[in-house]
């Protein structure tokens, strides 16, 4: 079955019904393993002590907030270039999840920063660019809510999403381009990770758990968005029956 076959929302919903239970199961197993490793097998860091355990949620949340925006950017291209029916559904469904992951990254980073740096917040390039990402997510969520027509809202949001995508390389390379208090990359590096495997493995397992959580929530939110559009289309049809010639002219197909 080709990728384009899933442009049909009904077919997509059937796929979600099959895939979701497996993803949820894998996600629970990954979280159980990751949390066990984070709290019971991972040693203390020689400098950070036990606060290194905050990294097992901070780093995956930070990765996911960027991955989520990448998914939204790819979806936005799908909306603007190919007019894929599920592209703006995907982008809209991902925004609140991305905002939540960004919030988690900022808060856990702040709670790690106080004992390690002596402050909850500094206006360095990494922290500020991630805060900008959170504001982008909130702005996009607001934009979607300000327009009744999901097709028009999807196109406007797609343009804004792609403009905001310029922030992604700024976040990634901010620690290299500017002198920041935030430490440089220690996992995704050209010369390999600089973290000891005893700390790296729990981090990677937790990252897998967070990634699976993202896909679970994203698929569920996409399913809800498809249902919302069906409700909207049916309500417009109901309105057109009640008052012929009014709502039918503005109705947009749900799929």
């Amino acid at each position: 079955m080709a990728f384009w076959d899933y442009a049909n929302p009904t077919r997509f919903l059937r796929l979600v019904q099959v895939v979701l239970p497996w993803l949820i199961g894998l996600c629970i197993v990954a979280f159980a393993a990751g949390l066990y490793m984070a709290f019971f097998t991972a040693p203390q860091d020689y400098q950070q002590g036990n606060t290194v355990r905050i990294m097992y949620i901070h780093v995956p949340a930070a990765w996911l907030c960027m991955m989520c925006y990448t998914v939204m950017s790819i979806s936005s291209i799908g909306t603007l270039v190919w007019k894929h029916p599920l592209a703006d559904v995907s982008a809209k469904a991902a925004a609140p999840i991305g905002a939540a992951f960004t919030f988690m990254a900022l808060v856990t980073g702040s709670l790690w920063g106080k004992p390690m740096w002596g402050t909850y917040w500094v206006w360095d390039a990494r922290l500020t660019s991630v805060l900008v990402l959170l504001i982008m997510y909130l702005g996009l969520m607001t934009l979607w809510r300000t327009m009744d027509d999901p097709i028009k809202a999807g196109k406007a949001a797609a343009v804004l999403t792609l403009v905001g995508a310029l922030n992604l390389p700024v976040i990634k390379f901010s620690v290299d381009w500017w002198n920041t208090l935030h430490q440089p990359a220690s996992v995704v590096r050209m010369d390999g990770p600089t973290i000891h495997p005893d700390i790296l493995w729990p981090l990677l397992v937790m990252a897998l758990a967070f990634t699976l959580l993202f896909f679970v929530l994203h698929l569920m939110a996409m399913r809800n968005e498809i249902l919302r559009r069906r409700v909207r289309a049916l309500r417009m049809r109901a309105a057109s029956v009640a008052q012929p010639g009014t709502a039918a002219a503005t109705a947009q197909p749900a799929e």
Partner: peptide, 29 residues
């Protein structure tokens, strides 16, 4: 150790956020 409060607050806030996301998708559905 002395920073247990920061560690458990971090995990607690993450748990709360994740539970809020799950509640959001389920209530919306």
């Amino acid at each position: 150790g002395p920073h247990a409060g920061f560690i458990f607050t971090s995990y607690g806030l993450c748990l709360f956020t994740i539970l809020a996301l799950i509640a959001w998708v389920r209530i919306d559905k």
